[in-house]
């Protein structure tokens, strides 16, 4: 059912996750992320799809008491990024993230995009200029902001802010990009822009996206995973999941009988 020639960029193996209050939010997830593909996570609220996504850049480490079990193997280095000896900061430098609500920093447009490079200690002005321009072009924002790079990022519209956040995440050349419901706070036109952008980004990197919107998953993703109550119910080709799912639960959710 899955094209065996496509290389795997990362895969979760028997991944369990526990929040600090003891609730188990993920139950033995096994799932691959194929390189240069978009994988969508769908499922009702509270099913664990965002929790799963946030394991990939160790976001849960920010809050004390959270616990991972199992592995997320990243290729080509074949490393378990959940390993104790792995520095979450190094992980985040290779796996970047775009959030549900645009969250630009209280800085200029330029400094927002340059942030990732600056925290890595980069201060070469010419290199920063080039990277910022490249990232803004990659996020289809360059033409709109090239004349006002020193403006405060908050002056942009919601859709522009989200593209700025994508540019920020792109500037450091990540291998994987995580999108946590990136369009849920945006209007339909801005949503279409972001979706188009994601389809283009697929050529450069691997994408994992959480979405509440099933049409969106069907439109943009190559693979889809349906989760429910912390379990991965079904994973497969997006076309297959949406046309002939093998599990009854998936079909009920997709056809709107449930959820």
């Amino acid at each position: 059912m899955i094209n065996a020639t496509t290389p795997i960029k990362a895969e979760s193996k028997d991944l369990n996750f526990f929040y600090s209050n003891g609730t188990q939010a993920l139950k033995g997830i096994n799932m691959p992320l194929y390189e240069n593909k978009i994988t969508a996570l769908i499922g009702p609220s509270g099913c664990g799809k965002s929790t799963f996504l946030r394991c990939f850049n160790r976001m849960h480490d920010l809050y004390p008491g959270n616990r991972y079990e199992g592995q997320i193997i990243m290729h080509p280095d074949n490393t378990n990024i959940l390993e104790k000896g792995v520095d979450p900061i190094e992980v985040r430098m290779r796996i970047s993230m775009v959030f549900q609500k645009p969250n630009p920093f209280p800085k200029s447009i330029y400094e927002n995009v340059a942030y990732g490079l600056r925290v890595r200690g980069e201060s070469n002005k010419r290199l920063l200029d080039d990277k910022v321009e490249e990232a803004l072009k990659g996020a289809a924002l360059w033409n709109e902001v090239k004349d006002r790079l020193q403006d405060l990022a908050f002056n942009l519209s919601g859709g522009q802010q989200q593209r700025l956040c994508i540019a920020r995440a792109l500037a450091t050349d990540p291998e994987i990009m995580l999108f946590d419901e990136p369009t849920s706070a945006l209007d339909p036109i801005a949503t279409a822009n972001i979706e188009e952008l994601m389809s283009e980004l697929r050529n450069k990197l691997t994408i994992l996206v959480v979405t509440h919107n099933m049409q969106q998953a069907a439109r943009i993703s190559d693979y889809t995973a349906y989760m429910y109550l912390g379990d991965l119910i079904e994973y497969g080709d997006t076309d297959m999941i949406f046309t002939r799912p093998t599990r009854k639960e998936t079909e009920d959710y997709i056809t709107g009988k449930f959820g």
């Binding site: 920010l62 993230m97 969250n103």
Partner: peptide
Amino acid sequence: VPMSMREGSYAMGATRFQTAIRVVTPAAV
């Protein structure tokens, strides 16, 4: 300062100190 802003900074690979100085402090100025 909302947690989402800190998370944005950490997600870029920033350390706690960088997040405090470069993001939280200007946001709370």
